[in-house]
Amino acid sequence: MPLSDPVRAAIIKVPAVTLGFWIIKILATTLGETAGDTVSMSMNLGYLIGSAIFLGALVLLVALQIGATRYRPFLYWATIIASTTAGTTMADFATRSLGIGYAGGSALLLTLVLVALFAWYRTLGSIAVETVHEPRAELFYWITITVSQTLGTALGDWFADTGGLGYIGAAAIFSAGLALLVLLYAKTSVSRVTLFWTAFILTRPLGAAVGDFLDKPVDHGGLAFSRPLASVVLGVAIVLLIALARDRDRSAAVTLGPA
């Protein structure tokens, strides 16, 4: 059902899953990587303190999101950015500070994603985003998103750092994975819900690889861009795209007229 449909707009509190959604999501995950590294590395606050800061922001934004009476684009995407930034620092804490490594961290986080989805389905009978319009569904939605963002970070670092692919190679692998999902969507009857959550997870390691490529030192395969500057540029791009999408949806609603 399109976002401009008055019934959906009045009930569902998350955006329609369109090409624009995925573009903003990939930019948001890239921002999550550069912003998370800015706090934990450039500011030398460490992964634990960085996780506490971003988790605090995430809890506040999720509470505001659940309390909202309708879909608010900037609030929604601010919450996504908070989840992906928290995911960056939490994944780094799990895989590095706890010493369980990328494989162990990825396995643990994948288990948590599956547990979150299973609990959501058992409680409400559906894990489709179209059902996210009441507090319990929203809470499950944001828990699943945060854990999937953390998993995606661990996967991105695993492929880039220990898989011998480098940041560009890792980004290419995850881009190919997303392209395969698009093909499955277009040519098969594979569950759209399964494809959505798989794509949601895969966009995170793609963003992680791109973010690391932008801000890591040249001798580590990166471009050594300023993390704060890269974060600002990404943030501005996201704001502009959200504003454009919002204006487009308003124009479509005016064209359709009242329900």
Rank of each mutant, 00 (worst) to 15 (best):
M1T: 14
P2T: 07
L3W: 08
P6F: 01
P6C: 05
A9N: 14
I11H: 13
I11W: 04
K13G: 04
V17L: 11
L19Y: 11
W22H: 01
I24A: 01
L27C: 07
A28M: 11
G32I: 05
A35E: 06
D37A: 14
D37E: 13
T38I: 00
V39A: 07
M43Y: 15
G46N: 09
Y47N: 13
G50A: 10
A52E: 09
I53L: 15
I53A: 10
L55Y: 01
V62D: 02
A63F: 07
A63N: 03
L64E: 07
I66A: 08
I66E: 04
I66L: 07
I66C: 03
G67Y: 01
T69E: 13
R70Q: 14
R70Y: 04
R70H: 10
P73V: 03
F74Q: 08
A82P: 08
S83G: 15
S83Y: 06
T84C: 11
A86F: 15
G87L: 08
T88M: 05
T89F: 02
T89C: 09
D92A: 06
F93V: 04
L98Q: 10
I100V: 14
I100R: 04
G101T: 12
Y102V: 10
Y102M: 08
A103Y: 13
G104T: 05
G104N: 06
S106Y: 06
A107Y: 11
L108A: 15
L109Q: 05
L114V: 14
V115F: 09
F118C: 00
A119G: 02
A119E: 11
R122E: 13
T123P: 00
G125C: 12
S126L: 08
A128G: 09
A128E: 14
E130L: 12
H133I: 07
R136F: 12
A137G: 13
E138Y: 07
F140H: 05
F140S: 01
I143M: 09
I143E: 01
T144C: 09
T146A: 14
V147M: 01
S148G: 03
T150G: 08
G152C: 10
W158C: 05
F159Y: 11
D161Y: 11
G163C: 12
G164L: 04
A170L: 07
A172H: 08
I173W: 12
F174N: 03
F174P: 02
S175W: 03
S175V: 08
L178P: 02
L178G: 03
A179F: 15
A179M: 14
L181D: 04
V182F: 05
L183H: 08
L184I: 03
K187I: 00
V190D: 05
T194H: 10
L195M: 10
F196Y: 15
F196A: 01
F200H: 10
L202M: 15
L202A: 12
T203K: 05
R204G: 09
G207M: 07
L214R: 02
P217R: 11
D219R: 14
D219H: 14
H220T: 13
G222R: 02
A224Q: 15
S226M: 12
P228S: 09
L229V: 15
V233C: 00
V233G: 02
V236M: 07
V236D: 06
I238F: 04
V239C: 12
V239E: 05
L241E: 02
A245M: 13
R246M: 09
D247Y: 03
D249Y: 00
R250I: 14
R250H: 11
S251C: 06
A252M: 13
T255H: 13
L256Q: 12
G257Q: 02
P258R: 10
